[in-house]
Design a protein around this nucleic acid. Structure first.
Lengths: 252, 252
DNA sequence: TGTACATCAGTGAACGCGCGTTCACTGATGTAC
DNA sequence: TGTACATCAGTGAACGCGCGTTCACTGATGTAC
């Protein structure tokens, strides 16, 4: 996997690719609107066509930025999860930690958050691996809710997640990767999982999806500046929402 | 106010303005990206410059669309509130009704929802009256939570809303317009409101803002097509979130 | 170690596109006497 | 009721802009003998 031993040309190439992406992100951040190869090249002191050495076209660059953003967010979440687990908090405290990490990442780089969660570019179909990357971001939430006891308020949601698990095998694989304890051991020689495992997986999913929706709600409003005027209530609102979720799943 | 008695020219003018906005919305909906005067004119069989008879420039048209969308959403919410109140539900059922109305409006016209809640166009400062229009959309939520008993999970949020009320008089006016029973009568001749009134106003605000964040979370994910693959879980997720909120505020 | 060749970064000119916006104009339509 | 005039919708040409992308090219840089 590691190809550290590259020629100097390949190294320079990677470096320039990275610089192009940096400049692109800065220009997106500075509000120039859509990203424009011409403008990026100009800022780098290059001629427009030079960028075609590094990216096939505009879409290629855009997709690279999106992939990077997902991966970066996923790394931040994984790190936060590890830190939180090491501190040996209860699941409720860990939920708050994860939520705050998600928010912090989005606030620190709003343009990248918009790149990920923003309005879908019409006609722009997300590549297949995007779904996998998005799931990596939310993965750390799964184990928290796998241990929960979903209450009445979320019962219907848990039911629908059970249906989703049955309809799409990749979803079960996702849960298994991040919350292996929720998938349960094979109940017998035929390899089917236990019913209890299914329930825990559905609970994990319900919690993660609800957390996602709530996170996206307050974070995207905050990123869009809609809380301007009410001081910095983003953290408070998010905290309240996570409390509600923790209550609904009986997290300790 | 009513200027029904216009000359035929003024009437024709209004009609054409409306048609321009219709076409603009349709083109936004069809995913052509940003709205373009040229393209609108072409679809209407007009020459580009003709549109300048009806809108000062591109921004003027965009602002008109945004204003209309807010007003339309506000009307839908007011209607839903009236219907729900007439049916004499409890506050919890009314919360669900309002949430579903909000979602239904957004799902029916995703492009208009994106126009309202979407990413802020960089550099495009919202006109002053926009805030008022946005508040009209959320207003119907206020009375539901004015009667609630906020629990521990939202205590901090309620506190911050008290601070917000103190810092911005227009917020109190907003609450007073939609939930007059929450503002309390003057406690004495000096015209200050009662402390109990302040608490209820803060509670109303906390509930409405939390509802807003949660609504925006699931609705915008659903509008962006992020729930594709998990059947139609938008309504279920939203319902669960409203249940959590209703629990947190002790709605009946 | 030195030379010949292949590789590859970057250039400049060019194409065609859609866009916002202005301007001077034409012709129809409503209105005042 | 008829005529003169003002109003106003709409046109076509034009400007300048930034954009994505292609092409044939130049020159530097790494590599194979």
């Amino acid at each position: 996997m590691e190809r550290t031993q590259q020629g100097p040309r390949a190294r320079y190439r990677e470096q320039t690719r990275a610089e192009i992406k940096d400049v692109a992100l800065r220009q997106l951040a500075e509000g120039g609107g859509a990203l424009a190869l011409t403008r990026i090249a100009k800022e780098m002191g290059l001629s427009g066509p030079a960028l075609y050495r590094y990216f096939a076209n505009r879409d290629d660059l855009l997709n690279a930025l999106i992939r990077d953003a997902y991966d970066d967010a996923a790394t931040a979440m994984a790190r936060a999860a590890a830190r939180s687990t090491r501190d040996a908090h209860g699941t409720r405290a860990r939920l708050h930690d994860l939520a705050e990490a998600y928010r912090a990442w989005a606030i620190a780089e709003p343009h990248r958050y918009l790149l990920i969660q923003g309005a879908p570019v019409p006609g722009h179909v997300a590549p297949a691996d995007t779904l996998e990357r998005a799931r990596a971001v939310l993965g750390p939430f799964l184990p928290l809710f796998a241990a929960g006891e979903p209450g009445a308020a979320v019962a219907t949601t848990v039911d629908e997640m059970t249906a989703w698990l049955a309809a799409d095998a990749s979803v079960g694989a996702w849960v298994a990767r991040y919350a292996p304890e929720a998938t349960g051991a094979p109940s017998s020689a035929d390899g089917t999982t236990t019913a209890a495992g299914d329930v825990r997986a559905a609970s994990a999913l319900a919690g993660a999806v609800l957390a996602w929706a709530q996170l996206h709600g307050s974070v995207s409003l905050e990123v869009a500046g809609q809380f301007a005027g009410m001081a910095h209530q983003g953290a408070t609102l998010l905290g309240a929402q996570m409390e509600l979720l923790a209550d609904a799943f009986g997290l300790e």
